[in-house]
């Protein structure tokens, strides 16, 4: 496969992991961002696979990820006994 991109299309994080590679060798890889978990196939259109073409609407920042609310929220631990 062609060289792994250096940044996440969605959040620009630079740790990218390979989750899977095409059963037909060398056709595509499935990659994942180590921070925002964005997952994409290397053969997807540029609007999904390249930082410079990724839509602003869907971009995430570190603050977006840190401040994301929990759904559902973790309930308080019930006291036992």
């Amino acid at each position: 496969m062609t060289s792994t991109p250096s940044e996440c299309p969605r959040c620009a994080h630079e740790t990218i992991e390979q989750l899977f590679t095409s059963p037909v060798p060398g056709v595509w890889d499935v990659l994942q961002c180590g921070r925002c978990l964005y997952t994409w196939r290397t053969t997807e259109p540029a609007r999904r696979s390249r930082r410079d073409a990724y839509p602003d609407n869907f971009k995430l920042t570190e603050a977006d990820i840190d401040n994301a609310i929990e759904v559902p929220s973790v309930p308080p631990l019930a006291s036992r006994g």
Binding site: F20, V30, C36, L37, Y38, T39, W40, R41, P55, F58
Partner: peptide, 19 residues
């Protein structure tokens, strides 16, 4: 366990976070 080896996973919509 490797779900990718059992299921041909793919994306539906442009803004989806994954498969």
């Amino acid at each position: 366990v490797d779900l990718f080896s059992v299921l041909p996973l793919f994306r539906l919509n442009d803004g989806d976070g994954g498969f």
